[in-house]
């Protein structure tokens, strides 16, 4: 029987971008509100999982040719080097600096911390780990790597 999943695929094409936008919002909300790199990475990987559900592994790897194991390692390295960058300024490990300035056009005070780079590393590690696990356990028995 030919299975018709055109509704799921059409919904996925729209909802994926909504979920990714929400992930970016959660990622940048993490300084003073609930959010941050970990939950942002989890939401990004849930968007990727929705794409895997609606399509298949082959199509998604053709569209996004990402090796998730490399992403995991890169994320951990980014986080580690952000922590180690504080040694240059003779402060303890993982000390963070922040910049507070006034944005003229949008008329708002902006507070940027170096924690954001650390959070990017955390998000990359989370996305890489989750997607590696999901893709590994969903692979069929006889399939090639």
């Amino acid at each position: 029987m030919k299975i018709n999943d055109v509704i799921l695929q059409t919904v996925t094409k729209i909802v994926t971008f909504i979920i990714l936008t929400f992930a970016i919002y959660l990622f940048f909300a993490g300084h003073h509100n609930p959010g941050g790199g970990f939950i942002g990475g989890l939401v990004i990987s849930s968007a990727l999982i929705l794409m895997l559900l609606a399509f298949d592994i082959e199509t998604v790897t053709q569209t996004l040719p990402i090796n998730y194991k490399v992403i995991t390692g890169l994320g951990v390295l980014v986080s580690l080097f952000t922590g180690m960058a504080s040694f240059v300024f003779h402060v303890p490990f993982l000390s963070q600096a922040h910049l507070h300035f006034y944005m003229p056009i949008v008329n708002e005070e902006i507070n940027i911390a170096t924690t954001i780079i650390f959070e990017i590393g955390v998000a990359m590690a989370v996305v890489g780990t989750t997607m590696t696990v999901i893709v590994s356990i969903s692979r069929n028995k006889g399939d090639e790597e």
């Binding site: 299975i3 799921l8 849930s46 895997l52 559900l53 592994i57 692979r139």
Partner: peptide, 26 residues
């Protein structure tokens, strides 16, 4: 967040019931 997670969970369960496999290779 709960809306997203509930939606994905329902889709995964439905696909498992319909085809017996959640994420297809091809």
């Amino acid at each position: 967040l709960m809306g997203i997670i509930a939606f994905i969970g329902t889709v995964a369960f439905s696909k498992y019931i319909e085809r017996g496999i959640i994420i297809e290779s091809r």
